[in-house]
């Protein structure tokens, strides 16, 4: 039942979306076809001003990743009354936020892995269970993962999830539909989006598009692209009509890539590994000589 409603929404929204964006703005980026040989890496642009909260992306994500099926009431709009977090069974959630300008038109935004340019999770992982690929996705390999959950501690967006209720748990999160990208397809959510609120393309193209939208629509957007500089830049970027903390985005995460925070220590490791033994051996040989002398003295006094 909900399927039909959703299909209807898709079509309805498609027309509405065009009107919303105006001519030519759903634009080149959304039609970008992934090219596996492209040296630039992929990203997404989420234009929350175009999102109508139909949750087609959410549904497509569940189907694509073969996640546990949700009960019918899950797809009710009431689910969005409380902001939700991703879970081991939902890699992508659409949330509803009040619109201060027009309370009758709430703002919808989505939450999923941001696919950081320099991901904290991947730098935290001691077995490369999480890895940033050159195409853009941050991928997970459960055959390597130890389940230490350091990635969860490290991720500035609290994205990696862990199924504590399983004896064979895994880390789960959006992997940017890596398998689809390999086949030259768009990620499932971008494919499903009826309004162009989720745009797929190379990160460079999407940044251009985002800037263009801000400059050509004075007053429509809050003048900032979330993800352009956050934690050194993220693969997923957001546009919004209101400051980003009002749509549940993390503030105060800085613009330095997280892995840089541990560089100082990592560089000091080989230094200490080389210097300490040398210094200690030096100290040892000094005190050993002293020790031998003492013993000699002792013996001599004993002989006397």
């Amino acid at each position: 039942m909900s399927f039909k409603r959703r299909d209807f929404l898709k079509v309805a929204a498609g027309t509405a979306g065009l009107a919303l964006l105006g001519p030519g703005k759903s634009a080149d980026a959304s039609s970008a076809v992934p090219n596996p040989n492209n040296p630039e890496f992929f990203g997404m642009l989420i234009d929350t001003t175009a999102c109508i909260g139909c949750r087609a992306c959410e549904q497509a994500c569940g189907e694509q990743n073969k996640l546990a099926e949700q009960p019918a009431e899950y797809w009710d709009d009431k689910t969005m009354d409380q902001p939700r977090d991703t879970t081991p069974d939902t890699y992508l959630v659409v949330n509803k936020y009040p619109n201060p300008a027009d309370p009758s038109k709430p703002i919808f935004s989505r939450k999923q892995c941001m696919h950081c340019n320099q991901p904290a999770c991947a730098s935290a992982c001691l077995v490369k269970g999480l890895e940033k690929t050159k195409e853009g996705p941050v991928n997970y390999d459960k055959t390597r993962c130890m389940g230490c959950r350091y990635c969860m501690i490290a991720c500035p967006f609290d994205i990696p999830k862990f199924n504590y209720d399983s004896p064979t748990p895994v880390i789960s999160k959006c992997v940017f539909c890596t398998s689809r990208l390999k086949n030259g397809e768009k990620p499932a959510c971008a494919d499903a989006c009826p309004t162009g609120a989720t745009l797929f393309g190379t990160r460079r193209e999407l940044l251009e598009e985002a800037k263009k939208r801000i400059y050509t629509n004075p007053g429509k957007y809050h003048n900032k692209i979330y993800g352009e500089n956050e934690v050194g830049g993220t693969g997923f970027m957001y546009l919004s009509s209101v400051p980003f903390e009002q749509i549940g985005m993390k503030k105060n995460i800085g613009s330095t890539p997280y892995p840089e925070d541990t560089l100082g220590f990592l560089f000091s490791v080989p230094l200490v590994d080389v210097l300490w033994p040398a210094l200690l051996a030096g100290l040892y040989s000094i005190s050993k000589g002293k020790d031998a002398e003492n013993q000699k003295d002792e013996k001599e006094t004993h002989h006397e």
Partner: peptide, 11 residues
Amino acid sequence: GNKFGFSSVMF
């Protein structure tokens, strides 16, 4: 393992 996370403090 053949996958060493050299960039990881945990490693």
